[in-house]
Nucleic acid binder design. Structure first.
Lengths: 346, 346
DNA sequence: GGTTAGCACTCTTATTGTGGGAGTGCTAAA
DNA sequence: TTTAGCACTCCCACAATAAGAGTGCTAACC
């Protein structure tokens, strides 16, 4: 593929991203600044079309990038402009203001959507949510108990359970202390497994209280896991784009935003990737996102991946701007978590 | 207003609600079953138009109800059909499965939206969230403390705070116990006020620890109040309706659903009303809801209003069905809270 | 007096036709 | 290799037309 052809492709895509109209030969000829006639440009465009990089909606319109065209663009043509220093600082202070994990993740998500004018998504960090820290039992009235489970850097899960007996406050405190001592710092999954094993083994030779308590702990652990692990914000931003302004499509998209598990699956697939990853149009594999692109990045502390964040928008999004934003946000979020966990409980 | 005229109005509105098209004289003549000619019906419709109860979008279409028309309809013409026994039971079991306040409210909201195919909203109950039950301080690493505040029937608010000193676990437990003993069962607002007073008074003659602890408690109380007090679900249902299928309008609506405070204001105004209350079109006062209606009901336990719930949908909604659904859901939710709080901590 | 048939009228909606504009592909010449 | 020229295609906006739905009004009917 010729030098010039790719230059034209770049110009065409940039133009198309700017104003959303198919780009004709005359316009493109002016845009490149090469002082070539439209006819020449037409020849090049015909070549690009043969290569499957652009296409025309109908015989006499301009050209529009195809998925392969965008792919080539983001892989090798694109010149990312780094974020302005002040923007970075603004993000940093916003993130610094967030006290606990959830608000931190929420802030990051809102930053993503407000800066890019697209929809932002942030996964709640894995390790934060997966480490057992402390458990407590608070007596409510009757046979009801409030079980409070503290994980990671201060996430609190709570659940009301119903018991067979009533316990004295002292018994409950003791039980909490014991479990905390046994499991603190361990992986939630391990803890669950071990609880199950213990329930098996302690069949006879441990007192009834212990058995009950293990069962209660088991109950709250179950609910602690499948919580809302994805924060989405700025959904309404997608309504601005003409290419998505179709009630059917929007309805499907919004349903996915409330359902979330499809998005989580998708993000999960990015977890192995280094740095920023991009899905263009149907590359995601979800028909739902055929007219959308997804830009994601993992955020990691000391080499360990905590989670994934990203934005979702129309394929015709400003990649040059979105990519650095996602990249920087991931780094800043990682840094924020790094500070938290450098003095963490684990 | 004649007997017959109101009968025609009722028929017209029911027809319009059914298929969303302006109703013409011929159609209405058939619908009523009175064996009258279209010409006669036209005379009646002209009267209804003079009274401002119906209007025609243009000279030669059928008639469409106005806000006043709907108002008359819901106030005196409407025949509500009670909910099927089995539907009620289904709701009841769903609600019974919810353990804590948040899931209860969330379930109610989802029930509303799934049964009516509209958007459901439920306010988190006031008293549940406003009563101080227990406070605990969990040491994290460094100078960070996790403050856990339990309110009402088991809502848990938590926040990480930074302290000047490090405290021993024993001190923290003691502090928690003391505060719990002091304030348990009291109104959050009162507690806050009292904390402030105490901070003033204990200026000299109480030890430093106490002072610090009061400040920490103050911090978590502040965040406990302005939390998410409204659960909305089924937003996407509104996309089904032709009369709302307009990107601009939907965008504004969805923005309100994420913002929530406008809706909360509106619901707050219903809190004084007995039973089911209805806002039709511009009656709500929000231009945003000009093409929508809102059906709300308060839910109360032993005479005391806990909160408000309701649905939002196009003015052309099936009031005959929606009204009993909202009514019943409110009662069932109240009952669910009644069971909880009959053995409650307060 | 309420009810009805008849009729002219209005307005919407769908269809068709028309012309202009934008852009293309191809060919032949520079 | 580049360019000008030209015929061609397709979209789009606009007008014209016809059909259909429904109205208001009048005059006659029971």
């Amino acid at each position: 593929m010729s030098e010039r052809a790719s230059y034209f492709l770049k110009a065409l895509i940039e133009r198309y991203i700017r104003d959303g109209q198919p780009v004709g030969s005359r316009t493109l000829a002016k845009d490149t600044g090469l002082d070539l006639s439209p006819a020449t440009v037409r020849n090049v465009m015909a070549d690009l079309e043969d290569m499957g990089l652009v296409t025309s909606p109908h015989t006499s319109s301009g050209r529009v990038p195809t998925v392969s065209g965008y792919r080539l663009f983001v892989d090798s043509l694109l010149t990312v402009q780094p974020l302005a220093e002040q923007d970075i600082n603004a993000c940093q202070t916003e993130l610094a203001a967030a006290a606990d994990v959830t608000t931190l993740v929420d802030t990051a998500s809102r930053l993503l959507s407000s800066i890019t004018h697209l929809t932002g998504m942030v996964m709640v960090p894995r390790c934060e949510r997966d480490v057992f820290h402390q458990i407590e039992f608070v007596p409510l009235s009757g046979t009801r108990l409030l079980v409070i489970l503290v994980t990671g850097a201060g996430e609190v899960h709570n659940r009301i359970v119903y018991t067979d007996h009533t316990y004295t406050p002292a018994q409950l405190v003791q039980a909490g202390n014991m479990l905390t001592a046994m499991f603190s710092g361990q992986d939630l999954h391990t803890v669950r497994q071990q609880l199950l094993d213990d329930l098996e083994q302690t069949h006879q030779h441990v007192d009834q209280l212990m058995r009950q308590v293990l069962q209660l702990a088991q109950q709250v652990l179950v609910t602690a896991e499948p919580k809302d692990h994805l924060l989405v914000s700025g959904q309404t931003n997608l309504m601005e784009f003409d290419e998505l302004a179709n009630i059917e499509r929007l309805k499907a998209l919004f349903a996915a935003f409330t359902e979330k598990h499809q998005l989580l699956d998708l993000l999960d697939r990015c977890i192995a990737a280094e740095g920023v990853q991009i899905f263009i149009g149907d590359e995601s594999g979800y028909a739902l996102l055929d007219d959308c692109s997804l830009v994601t990045a993992t955020y990691r502390v000391r080499g360990q991946v905590l989670g994934v964040l990203g934005v979702i928008g129309p394929t015709r999004m400003n990649y040059q701007r979105v990519i650095p934003v996602v990249d920087v946000t991931a780094r800043l979020l990682a840094a924020a978590f790094g500070q938290q966990s450098s003095c963490s409980i684990v």
